[in-house]
Simulated scan of single mutants.
Amino acid sequence: MIVICLNPPTSELPVLRKVIRSSTIDLIADQIRNAIYSGSLDPGQSINEVRTAELLDVSRPSLREALQRLVSEGVMAHAPGRGVRVKRMRPNDIDDVYAVREAIEAQAVKVVIRSGKPIVRIHQSLERLEHAIEGNTARLVGDADLDFHHSIVACSGSVRLSDLMKVSMVHTRLLSLSDPRGYEVRCDLIETHRHLLEAIADGDEARSLTIVGRVMAGAAARLHHSQTDTEAIIVKAAAREAGVDDQWSQLRDTMKP
C-alpha cells in the first residue's frame, strides 16, 4: 500500500547556515552535508564555487578544500571540465552503502552491549520515530528512522564510528533521493525497531546483530525494486513544493543538474 504525502515540509535536520569561522573546513563540509541531507541540494546538482562561497561567507580556497573532502567521502563527484556535483547514486551503490551501514551499526551494537552503555538516547529516538509515523510525512519519518540508527552508534561513545555514521547517513539519504520512483519510506517497520531496542536492552548481541542485518537487507531490497512484501506501507513524498525557500533557493536555478 502506498500513501502519497502532498506538500511535505522540509527536513527538520539543520540546513545550510552561514559559516562564521571561514578557516574551519570541517564546519563548511558539515553545512554542505546538511544541505544535501535536508534535500536543499539535489543529487546531480552542480556547485558554483563563486556563489556558494558568497553564500557561506567563506574563501574559495576553503570551500574548494571542503568540497574535495566531500568528494573523497563519496558525497560529491568531480568530473574534469564539469566541476563538482552532488553525487547521484546508482543501483550498484545500494549494496555497498548498506554493507557499510551494517558494519558500522553492528560494531556499535557490540560496543553498547559489551560495555553496558546507557541506551536512553535510543529509547528517545524510538519515541520520535513513533510520533513521526503518526504524522505520516515521508521526510520526517525518514529523518526519525535514520536518527534511531544514529542513536545506536552515538550510544557506543565512539567518535570514529559516529563520524563514519554521519557520512553513511548522507549516503543513505542520497540513495533515496536518487531513486527514480521519488523519495519514499516504509512506515510499517516500527515493530522491528522495537525488537532491536529490546534485544540491545536485554544484552542479546546475536539477536541484535540479526535484526540489524535484516533491516539493512530489507532496505537494500526495496531500493533494488525487489521488495516482494505487498502489504508494506510506504509513504511517498511529493516533489519539492514550489516556492519553498531556504538559504539555497537563490542558487538552485543557476545550479540545475
Rank of each mutant, 00 (worst) to 15 (best):
A53W: 02
L67H: 03
T52A: 12
L140Q: 11
S156D: 05
S226N: 13
V15Y: 07
I2N: 14
I36Q: 00
E102Q: 04
K117A: 10
H123V: 07
I152F: 01
I234Q: 04
Q45V: 08
W248H: 08
S162N: 15
L6S: 14
D245E: 13
C187N: 15
A138S: 13
L174K: 00
P61Y: 04
T52K: 03
S226K: 15
K256L: 14
N136S: 09
P14C: 12
V159N: 11
V120E: 13
G157Y: 01
E105Y: 01
L175I: 06
V235C: 10
L164S: 08
E191W: 13
L174A: 00
R173T: 04
L6G: 12
V86N: 00
R128P: 03
M76Y: 07
I113V: 07
V50E: 12
V100T: 11
G157D: 04
P8F: 01
L189H: 09
A221Y: 08
S115M: 08
V84T: 09
G83C: 01
D229T: 15
Q247P: 04
I122D: 00
S162F: 11
S59I: 02
V50W: 14
R214N: 14
A199C: 12
P257S: 07
V159Y: 10
D229F: 04
E184L: 05
A106S: 10
Y98S: 06
D96Y: 13
I234F: 10
L126Y: 11
H131N: 14
R69A: 07
A138E: 07
M165W: 10
S46K: 10
I4Q: 09
I119Y: 10
K236D: 08
L161M: 09
A221P: 06
A220E: 11
V215T: 06
N92K: 11
S176K: 15
L177F: 13
A138Q: 05
V75G: 02
T172C: 06
H224Y: 06
L129A: 11
R121Y: 04
S22C: 06
V75Y: 07
I233W: 08
R240V: 13
Q68A: 09
D188R: 02
A219P: 04
I119R: 02
P43F: 02
K117V: 06
A219W: 06
L6P: 11
A53H: 02
V86A: 05
I32W: 01
D30T: 03
Q68M: 11
T24M: 11
K256P: 14
N92Q: 14
R21D: 15
Y98G: 05
H149P: 06
T137D: 04
S115L: 09
D93K: 07
D163A: 10
S46N: 09
